[in-house]
């Protein structure tokens, strides 16, 4: 029955994009990550997983296929040859969503409880003018950790973990045009919650009216119907209010030109717009190994910790 036999066809060989494991300029190792789920996830959490993958771009597997029977070991086996250094795992034990961030292959593993989360789609829906161009994701985001200095050792470890999850920046060689996104982790000392936010960075020249800025940015003929003279276009201030008064703290003078409007000679204002997922995390546990090993830190007591471990094993 030859016709039932599988034809000896192979998928057309995709040109393998050889992503360098080492930065060309700084010579440092580029961290790569896998974002995947452990156990079955409900719909919104699966969306959160996808959002996190997008956040981790470009050094992550955006279309990582995971199957039900995939064990942690399978991912670990792939991670070695691929140069994957970090795992982000989402699980939902006892319907409490958890996020685990781990270094491969030896750990440590940091477990967070996701108290609240909002998807990128939700945030886009809440904004009047959401914008999330694809170019944002061609460079890895900056990371800002704030409020972590006050805590103990476990917070220090968390800081190190999150700093190493994105490639390091070299101030002398970095191009500012490649800094388009920022991930903020803000630790609140009172509530012991970590706010996880993801913003896009926009630079706008200061002291230029909105009309002219738009005119330069867009390649469009402006609407001059309501003007008496061409000079009005320049002199007349637009009725659009400069909603955010440019605070001195939010302005930068650039070293080099970025785009068409932000010249090196002028000052620019930094505008942040939220994209991507939003999470409120609580540090629950730190383990020495990769989802195993001795517990370095636990939010709960000793007994509670044992119970927690059991539930972790379930998924």
């Amino acid at each position: 029955m030859a016709r039932f036999k599988k034809k000896n066809k192979t998928a057309p060989a995709r040109p393998v994009k050889n992503q360098p494991s080492v930065d060309h300029i700084t010579g440092q190792k580029i961290p790569k990550s896998f974002v995947f789920s452990r156990g079955k996830l409900p719909g919104p959490l699966r969306d959160l997983e996808l959002d996190l993958r997008k956040l981790m771009l470009p050094h992550t597997a955006l279309k990582l296929k995971e199957k039900k029977r995939n064990k942690l070991k399978d991912f670990l086996n792939v991670a070695g040859p691929m140069g994957v250094t970090h795992f982000l795992m989402i699980s939902n034990p006892k319907s409490i969503p958890h996020l685990r961030v781990a270094r491969t292959p030896q750990g440590p593993t940091i477990t967070f409880e996701i108290h609240e989360y909002a998807l990128a789609a939700d945030i886009a829906r809440s904004q009047a003018r959401p914008s999330c161009p694809k170019e944002l994701f061609s460079n890895s985001p900056l990371i800002v950790l704030s409020g972590f200095g006050s805590g103990g050792q476990h917070l220090k470890l968390t800081t190190i973990m999150f700093q190493n999850i994105f490639p390091a920046i070299d101030i002398n060689t970095i191009k500012l045009s490649s800094c388009r996104r920022i991930v903020l982790l803000n630790y609140n000392n009172e509530t012991k919650l970590i706010d996880f936010r993801h913003y896009s960075i926009r630079l706008q020249p200061i002291g230029v009216s909105r009309r002219i800025r738009k005119f330069v940015q867009k390649h469009e003929v402006p609407d001059l119907r309501n003007l008496q003279d061409v000079s009005d276009f320049v002199t007349k201030a637009g009725y659009g209010s400069e909603s955010e008064a440019d605070e001195e703290s939010a302005t930068v003078s650039l070293a080099s030109d970025i785009g068409r409007v932000n010249r090196a000679s002028t000052k620019s204002a930094v505008r942040l717009q939220e994209i991507g997922p939003r999470m409120t995390l609580r540090l629950v546990k730190i383990e020495e190994g990769l989802c195993s090993g001795a517990v370095i830190f636990s939010e709960f007591g000793k007994e509670a910790d044992d119970a927690h471990e059991e539930e972790e094993e379930e998924d």
Binding site: L142, I182, L184, L272
Partner: peptide, 12 residues
């Protein structure tokens, strides 16, 4: 947002 802005400004 202001915290993040501060961070960005500092880096820039």
């Amino acid at each position: 947002v202001s915290v993040a802005t501060k961070g960005v400004v500092k880096l820039f």
